[in-house]
Write a protein that binds this DNA or RNA. Sequence first.
DNA 1: CGGAAACTCGTACTTGCGTACAAGTTTCCC
DNA 2: GGGAAACTTGTACGCAAGTACGAGTTTCCG
Lengths: 196, 196
Amino acid sequence: MEAASPARQARGQERVEQILRATLAVIGRGGVGAVTHRTVAEEAGVPLGSLTYYFGSKQELLREALRLHVVEDAGRLRALAAELADSGADGQQIVDGFADVLESGHPDIAQFELYLEAARDPALREVAAESLRAYAEVAEAALRAAGVPNASGAASVVVAAIDGLGLHRSAAGDKAVDLRAALALLLRALSPPSGA
Amino acid sequence: MEAASPARQARGQERVEQILRATLAVIGRGGVGAVTHRTVAEEAGVPLGSLTYYFGSKQELLREALRLHVVEDAGRLRALAAELADSGADGQQIVDGFADVLESGHPDIAQFELYLEAARDPALREVAAESLRAYAEVAEAALRAAGVPNASGAASVVVAAIDGLGLHRSAAGDKAVDLRAALALLLRALSPPSGA
DNA sequence: CGGAAACTCGTACTTGCGTACAAGTTTCCC
DNA sequence: GGGAAACTTGTACGCAAGTACGAGTTTCCG
């Protein structure tokens, strides 16, 4: 059901991954619009023919690349969530942690491109949803550790705010958005027991 | 300095607007990637040649279209802000107001495409920043009316959260994100005087 | 060791793109 | 009413895109 791809050998797997990573690099640099078989082939250092050999279409290539991005991201995030759940970090540490993640450019351009692409390609919906779930888990673990009351509900707000801040930052330039201040304010507001 | 465009006559202005609106429609439907001279020309019902006559390049067309989007949005939003500032709405009304805006699909796909495009095209930075300013004004007016303490600081968080929620909603499907609940939680958290 | 399956890769085809442009029409103003 | 400037539009050019493919090489397994 995976198109007409032949069963892959070990060598092939490597190449597939190499191509997918190159695709993500291209997306990060120039967005989904910059992805062409030729740019990806050059980035990956493979001949043009490889792309059509391993991927039935450009759309399939895009989908698989974004899927890889999410799988890896989700893995890393869940590890971080487990870590946060153990060591009881306080509010300030959490703010710093989130801000660091944001400033190291983490909510990558690729992440936003995934969202927009998923808005159009139903096959990516589930991938996007999985990504959101992973983010929410980390946020929830962090909030719970910080003693925030309704951690489960608050998590989705925090994730939305983080993505929003990251997006605004990418769009308007670094100086226009004060990440740390905004996050601190949000965390402080959520902290005192107020809602049931 | 506006390229080699000749001074426009009244008739020309209409056509320019028609083309720009068609461009926004195409973006809304298929993203920036779907914008081609041909798709826009068909959408606008004008011949292909018109596009090159009025716009020196495709990039210029894109920029002007997004600029128009922001100018109109900003105008409408500022009017709404003024309205909110007058009639003292309570928290629940504000949540409902925001949620309605979100559910009517307002933070349009075009808005998100603008953000991503601005991340790559410096000429769009200022446009994106203006858009964010307008959003922040509305949010601030609403929060102030609701008696939120640090309305100015909180506004940017609220705007980020709204954009984030809208984006997640577009990406993962309507049911995956509970807008109203998330917004209500956020507003409730911000409401009691806690931060200075 | 032999053949089938997986893989490699240069090349070529078709399509759709941005853009240019020439030949025409309308509009405006003196 | 005449001429210049604004506008209109069909057509065409060159290029880059996605994709197809055939001829070759490697890898695996019975």
